[in-house]
Amino acid sequence: MISQHILEEDIQLYVLDASQVKEETMQHLEHCTACQARVREYEMLFTGIGSLPKALFDFDVAALVLPQLPEKKKVSSYKIAGIAMVVIAAGLISLLFILLQYRLNELWQNISPWVIGLISVVAVAFIGISLWEMYERYRQQLKKLNFE
């Protein structure tokens, strides 16, 4: 049996779940009236907290919130058509490249540097705008959740 009084942490643990405390602690508790009194203090405290009145709103939360809800954004048919066109165009270009694979080098050499430049600028601009849009959407969602 331990002669020193039980640590505050173990007293709390005993009151919450006696099965988790060490055997020596249990033995000490059986004989020490001071520690038994500390146990009773915590028992009273936990019972007291458990029986405190629970908080409730004094207004109808649903009636307050429902009219404020934003309308769900529906994906517009134009957007769907746009995405479908991009997918089809990508498919056609891929098909063209597969079919003309052996002539690609020749094609590349004959293409004007102006056209390559134009394509590159459009592609970079497109990727840039998409990334910026993604970043903005991500920032807005984080802001909404307040995960600061």
Binding site: F57, F59, V61, L64, V65, Q68, L69, P70, Q141, K144, L145, N146
Partner: peptide
Amino acid sequence: RKDLVQDIYIKVYSNLQG
């Protein structure tokens, strides 16, 4: 509290998809 609870449930609604 009233403003906060409104704010909380609007956030819940807006982020439910996620």
